[in-house]
Structures are given as structure tokens and as C-alpha cells.
């Protein structure tokens, strides 16, 4: 195994609250981008969900750069090797960068989700994650590192909306 990877397995983040609540405008842009006109997502929706809601996986996309946080484009904007993502990926939100994989390309390898409730418009969401596993694998295109994270998305009073287990594929640049 690449030296220094094991120590990251089991590391868990603190609970982090999304910088914005579930905003109707952000839900509109999101649903327009995925081309889903379900009227449950519209303001004033009256469905059995009790309030206008966001799409099922919306909480996973809510953890963005808060106001005043360092701007990656100010830091890396002139770096031709900057992938535009850095540590801003929602896949590893709140977790420390895995230093031995610094500079490795990142691809989304897959997801397992368990869903319990939709997020409502106006609701505050928080999350926490952990590195569940890190393994190396040899493929026909060379070695890769599989990083598995587990995340919970919940309301401030602890009601879990969904759980996600995600696999990140990290590959050393050629």
C-alpha cells in the first residue's frame, strides 16, 4: 500500500451545517438542470410530503463554499494543472486531504444511498463523513486507489434524511 494511506481509514469529520438552507431558487436551478419538472419541488407544492421539497439527492449537493471561505480560483486560477475541484469536492467534504494522493485525478466511482425523507424548502441540513476504506487496485489502465466514504445527512435535531456510501477513484496523473 502507498505509504501513509492506512492512517486515514476511520477518520470522521465533525458535523457541518450547509452554508445555505434549502433555497427555493437553488432547488429550481437544480431541477431545471436535471430536467425534472415534478411539481413536488415547486414553491407552494401541496403533496403528501407536507411541504415543498427538494429532489432526493439534493442534500448531498448542498455543501458548498461558504461566504468568506478561501476562493480556489484566487489560489489556483492560473495553475494549468488545477482540476477546478481540489478539496471542494462534496465527496470528501469535511475530511482531511489524503496527502499521499495529492495531485491524483479524482473520478466518482459509484454511490449507495438509503433514503428516508426529502429535504423541505427552508430546512437546514448538516452532514458528517468518514473514510470507511482505502484500497489500491491494479487495472488494465494502471494502478488506482479506491477511497470509500460514508456520509449522513440530517436535520439539526438529528433526523437522518439519507445515508450515502461513495467510492472515489484516484489515479496518478500520467
Amino acid at each position: 500500500m502507498i505509504e501513509g494511506l492506512e492512517k486515514f481509514i476511520g477518520i470522521q469529520s465533525e458535523w457541518e451545517t450547509a452554508c445555505d438552507a434549502v433555497e427555493p431558487g437553488a432547488v429550481r436551478r437544480f431541477t431545471q438542470a436535471i430536467m425534472d419538472d415534478d411539481d413536488a419541488y415547486a414553491p407552494k407544492a401541496a403533496t403528501r410530503f407536507g411541504a415543498p421539497v427538494a429532489p432526493p439527492l439534493y442534500p448531498m449537493m448542498m455543501f458548498r463554499r461558504p461566504h468568506g471561505a478561501p476562493d480556489p480560483l484566487r489560489i489556483h486560477g492560473n495553475d494549468p494543472d488545477f482540476d477546478g475541484l481540489g478539496q471542494s469536492s462534496s465527496l470528501t467534504r469535511g475530511l482531511p486531504e489524503i496527502e499521499p494522493l495529492a495531485g491524483y485525478a479524482l473520478l466518482n466511482g459509484g454511490t449507495e444511498v438509503e433514503l428516508f425523507r426529502y429535504a423541505r424548502h427552508g430546512e437546514t441540513i448538516r452532514m458528517r463523513s468518514r473514510y470507511a476504506d482505502i484500497t489500491e487496485k491494479e487495472t488494465s489502465k494502471g494502478p488506482i486507489v479506491l477511497v470509500t466514504t460514508e456520509s449522513e445527512f440530517a436535520t439539526p435535531d438529528g433526523e437522518v434524511l439519507l445515508r450515502a456510501r461513495r467510492t472515489l477513484i484516484r489515479r496518478k496523473p500520467k
Binding site: 413536488a40 429532489p55 433514503l115 467510492t167
Partner: peptide, 25 residues
């Protein structure tokens, strides 16, 4: 993955529920 959830949600309908989904890219 949004498309997958939209597809399953629409099939399950308002009275159903998409409980678990797993996929690999």
C-alpha cells in the same frame, strides 16, 4: 445519479418510496 433517482421516483409514484439505490460508474 440524479437521472437514476428521477426515474425510480417517478416509477414508484407519490405513494411509493425509493428506499435504496446502488450504482457504479
Amino acid at each position: 445519479q440524479q437521472f437514476v433517482l428521477q426515474f425510480l421516483k417517478d416509477w414508484a409514484g407519490r405513494d411509493g418510496w425509493v428506499w435504496k439505490v446502488s450504482f457504479q460508474f
